[in-house]
Design a protein around this nucleic acid. Structure first.
Lengths: 223, 223
DNA sequence: CACCTTGTTGTACGATTGTACAACAGCGTG
DNA sequence: CACGCTGTTGTACAATCGTACAACAAGGTG
């Protein structure tokens, strides 16, 4: 039968070592896949280990425990999420309105609009109230998110010389994006991603003063 | 020692019987409390039984299993939710705008704005994708919810003789209410319930044409 | 008062959980 | 080539899980 491709050894090594950092990343990504597919209740240390192609005991070596792994996974997912949106803003140019529009559009396209991602996120939500560490991470992620939107909105207000309560507006937009994202991922049959995008972009129309979502359906080109 | 209040019996009965319907309700409410406090992972049949003051075996007698109990709990919570909002509309009078305003206000007051309720709800969200029955229940609850809002919005449009895409508007408002509700319950320190209410009522302002949330802060009286 | 239906109890079972730990082995260092 | 650090394995452990089931007893019926 198939021997290893290498010439020398009689048998392949039983395992390959990894830098702790690298291994931790692989375990975190395995945990993500597991949480997405089977939820928190179905995510055991053993199941994670299977998906990471390692022995169950290894989890204890790299993490303080299951709780620790889950918390670090939230951190990882949240950081990734932020990086993706930063990239979107990076390539959107300098005009604050273009940037906000791009931000909204990106919210309704993969990799942001992804049912698996939501499933993982819900797991974290379910822990925010009981797990102090998750609560702290959650707080940070959402503070960053709102701050990003708030500065974008403030920039638009300045550019267009209009008065906007940026904090309240950021609050509203965050909630609407979160809500549309949540509801679409839970049941994609209820409405399309394009409708969701139109709804959110319509809110921006209203913010800027070009009409209101749903009122006299606009002819704005969407991305 | 304290004997029973009744004159006759030497010892009190070891348990009291209940109508199946009644017992099921008690078990469902125990499950709610348990889900709220400890999440799905911490909600075992035994823990539910403790909170319902019955033996663990009784769950199996009244429900097909744990999954069945959880599903019926979602049904129960969703129905209650709908009834509460119906009551709000009932007492809000006939003017569709008053009714929508009341609906929004109620969304940011107990018993709707309740972290425990959200915690229970999140549990159900976490099951929508994997459990077919939960998915069906979820679909029904949200369809009802959006239909309610859509007809309210359509009534406002008719009354004010303005053109509104009611479906899209209902979609937007549902998402914003859901998002604000979710985010406030997860971290009440991020913003106040009054701010959330102002944000949502501001959206209604924009819908009707009295300005936009955040733009030139309105002087509208809130509830 | 005896009977019978059935709501209820208590327990036992196998499966699965998170964690601890001793033994193994990859691989850089000398 | 031998040594030693440590990433990795595999297993054992107690605890807890959902479920099944035999036995008990409450309370209406005759």
């Amino acid at each position: 039968m198939a021997r290893g491709a290498a010439a020398r050894p009689v048998s392949r090594p039983k395992y390959t070592r990894d830098l702790p950092e690298e291994r931790r990343r692989k375990l975190i990504e395995a945990a993500m896949r597991c949480l997405a597919e089977r939820g928190l209740a179905g995510t055991s240390v053993r199941e994670i280990a299977v998906r990471a192609d390692v022995s169950p005991g290894l989890v204890g070596h790299h993490f303080a425990g299951k709780e620790d792994l889950v918390a670090q996974t939230y951190d990882y997912v949240g950081t990734n999420f932020g990086k993706i949106l930063d990239d979107v803003l990076e390539t959107a140019g300098d005009d604050p309105e273009d940037r906000l529009r791009a931000f909204v559009d990106a919210s309704f396209r993969p990799p942001i609009l992804d049912s698996d991602l939501l499933a993982v996120w819900i797991t974290f939500w379910s822990l925010v109230r009981t797990d102090a560490r998750i609560h702290t991470i959650h707080r940070g992620i959402y503070a960053d998110y709102r701050r990003r939107l708030e500065s974008l909105i403030a920039a638009i207000a300045e550019r267009r010389r209009i008065v906007i309560e940026a904090r309240l507006a950021a609050l509203s937009l965050t909630a609407m994006l979160d809500g549309l994202w949540l509801e679409w991922c839970l049941d994609p049959s209820a409405f399309t991603a394009e409708e969701a995008c139109r709804a959110a972009q319509g809110w921006v129309d209203g913010l800027i003063g070009e009409g209101f979502p749903g009122r006299l359906p606009g002819r704005r080109k969407t991305a």
